[in-house]
Design a protein around this nucleic acid. Structure first.
Lengths: 234, 234
DNA sequence: TAAGCCCTTAATGTTGACATTTTCAGTCTT
DNA sequence: AAGACTGAAAATGTCAACATTAAGGGCTTA
């Protein structure tokens, strides 16, 4: 009598989620040290599960750990953010190319539902930006549509945590309105046509656009500053 | 009086390396369970550091862990291997495109040294295959030449462990002789010309070739077997 | 004989204490 | 006053024991 896919949350996995969210939202600041003893007291758990959570977050690129010195939250330098988007470009463009081949028609229907929800939201709020959660849901559906576990793991576990962190802590980095929706439609259209090359190209452009907006915004805000590469982004 | 970048190996990191090698070589078989209690006794350590090592290997995709049930070594199905190579294709082709822009001339000199060593080896052994270590060194130099930490991490921590595991446990999957060397030369040439597009295209072809050889070999060896996708590779 | 239940056993999850290393403040020396 | 040394305090690394959950064998029963 089991079968049920274990909703049982182990303490260590709960801690992972809690810390992950705290890092993404900036509740735990970039570059700040994660003291095991302090956190353990503060959250009223022992250090064992906490250490495991930290190891996992290390694997998610959210934390940098130095032996015998402890763990720190990563800092989102401009260069680092651009590197994140380069990795995302490589992986997610490949993901949609595979999705164009591997998605079922039910999977594609789901894409339409997600896009329609975005369109409805834009209409109702008359042109504001797409909610972050809705955008993630769309991209996640695409990524899972690739049916490639390795790419899915790399994107969802290693890349998207960083992207969420960056977007959450940078007001202006939220996905921009109608342009994104148009690009989303183009991607779904390409997948519907089972056109892997078109899907890949369109997604690549979608991400490069996002990357370019970030770069331009940074240059606008730090025009006269030297050594801009090593300055923290916000 | 320190500065020295800490050669001090913590026990948990030593365990990580030991287990990693044991998994890659097949000393610990694919799909077999990693019992914490048994391993701890066997290696004469406590379970704490061992658990951390297992978490890290989990992040490297070498181990699959199910809460309350334990950890198992991954199985290299054909489909999984092909997925690994698809992820590698996406990431490493982007890596060399970036390397063509970002590598210093000293970095490129190093590439030449690595290739010359391969050529020398082929000459001396008259056409045998390039040693695995030499091939890894070359690809690692390229990847690090991208100067992109995210891509580097994804490839070196998540992908290459699996590739080494696959190659080590499949005699015939070793890199094949002179063709590879030619392709290596072409990649270095493209980087020297600072031609990102050419470098990317050449690397993509290099990896697709490897992937195709794997697929063909599998089909040759399992012609009449149904459900070949879910059969373990070796 | 096969299916289901119970109980024993063993494994994973968690905790608190101990060991070792790092950090840092205070002192001393030049 | 600047720098190096010393020692106390705190942090990370490690260990062994406890708690809880899953796994396996034997029994009963249909």
């Amino acid at each position: 009598m089991n079968q049920a896919p274990n909703l049982v949350n182990t303490l260590s996995s709960e801690l992972t989620d809690t810390l992950r969210d705290a890092i993404i939202t900036g509740e735990i600041a970039q570059g700040s040290k994660l003291s095991e003893t302090k956190l353990a007291k503060q959250m009223d758990v022992s250090r064992g599960p906490l250490r495991e959570a930290i190891r996992r977050l290390e694997g998610m690129n959210l934390i940098h750990h130095i032996p015998q010195q402890g763990a720190r939250v990563v800092k989102l330098h401009m260069n680092f953010v651009l590197q994140i988007y380069e990795a995302r470009e490589a992986l997610e463009s490949k993901a949609v190319a595979l999705a164009a081949v591997n998605m079922s028609s039910q999977d594609i229907d789901e894409l339409h539902r997600l896009i329609d929800a975005q369109a409805k939201h834009l209409k109702e709020t008359s042109g504001a930006s797409i909610p972050a959660e809705s955008d993630y849901a769309f991209h996640q559906a695409l990524i899972q549509g690739s049916k490639n576990d390795v790419i899915e793991h790399a994107l969802l576990q290693e890349i998207y945590g960083l992207i969420k962190m960056f977007r959450y802590q940078n007001e202006a980095a939220r996905t921009s309105s109608t342009n994104s929706l148009i690009e989303h439609r183009q991607i779904v259209y390409a997948i519907e046509q089972r056109d892997a090359v078109l899907a890949e190209t369109t997604m690549r452009r979608h991400i490069v656009h996002a990357r370019d907006r970030i770069e331009q915004r940074f240059h606008r805000e730090h025009i006269s500053s030297a050594a801009k590469e090593n300055k923290p982004f916000n």
